[in-house]
Amino acid sequence: MNILSVQNVVKQYANHTAVDHISFDIPSGTIFGLLGPNGAGKTSLIRIITCITKADVGQILFNGTPLNINTPSEIGYMPEERGLYKKMKVGEHLIYLARLKGLSVTEAKAKVGNWLEKFDITSWWNKKIEELSKGMSQKIQFIATVVHEPKLVILDEPFSGLDPINSLLIQDEIIKMQQNGTSIIFSTHRMEQVEEMCHNIVLINKGKNILSGEVNQIRQDFKQNAFRVDFAQEIPESILQENGVIKKNNNTIQITQNDLVTMNRWLAEKIQNGNPITGFKEILPTIGEIFIKQVEENNIITE
C-alpha cells in the first residue's frame, strides 16, 4: 500500500515549468527522501502534495484516493523557512494550529501537553514565542507539525539550525513515528542523514525525476566495483604497481575490478602468495556522490 502516489504531475508557472511530469510512489510507513539541488522544484511539489496549490496535469493519490478537502488534516508540513506568531504563547499557539487541523479543544490540549512533556519543556507553556531561541522555536515548530498525528509528515530541512543534541532528539522522534506507522517525506541536502534514515528516495533536477528507488538498491546500481583491502603488513611494491590500485596508506589500498568474482580471485591469489589480509570491504558510492554525479550529468545533457 502506498501512502502517496504521484502520477505524472506537471506544474507550470508564468515563465518556467517547476514540476515536469514527475511520478513516484511512497510506500506506507517508510521514510522517503525528496532530494534535489536548490530550485529543482521540491517546494513546488510539496505545495501540490499539501494542497496549497494544484497540479496542472496529473494526479496524486493519498492513501489510494485523490487529494481532497480532507487531505490537509492528514498531513503535517514543516516548511524549510519556518515561522510562528511571535506574540503568541507556546501553549496557545500549538493549540491554535492543532485546532486548525481539526482537533477539538480538549484533544488539542491533551496532545500538546503530551508533546511538551515528551520534550521536557512543559514550563514553556506560557512563554511567548519571541522569547524562545532559534533551536527552541524549532522544537515548537516540530510539535506543531506532528501534534494532530498526521498519516504523512513532510519535513523540509528539519535539522537546519539545531545543535547535535536536539538534532538527535528530533531524529529519534522521527524514527519512533515511522515505527508507529507514520510515513515521512524528508526534503534535505544532508546526504549522510538520507543514507541513515531514508528507505526510498527520488532525485529531481530542473523539475524532472532523474533517479528514484530504494536507497540500498541505488547504491548497488551505482557501485563501481571498488574495494578496500587492509593488509597485515606493509604492502609490496608489486601490488601497488597493479592496474586500478590506489594507495590509501601503508597498509590499505583501494582497488577497482570488473566484478566481485574477479576480485575474490585476486584476493585468493594474494593470500596464497603470503600476504596476510585483515580487512576487505566493498566500497559503495554514497548518496551524496550519486547526487552530485547525477545532477551534473543531467545538467550537461539538458544544456
Partner: peptide
C-alpha cells in the same frame, strides 16, 4: 516575512 503563512495555508 516570518513564513508562518505557509504553515497556515497547509491547514
Amino acid at each position: 516575512t516570518n513564513r508562518i503563512v505557509e504553515v497556515m495555508i497547509s491547514s
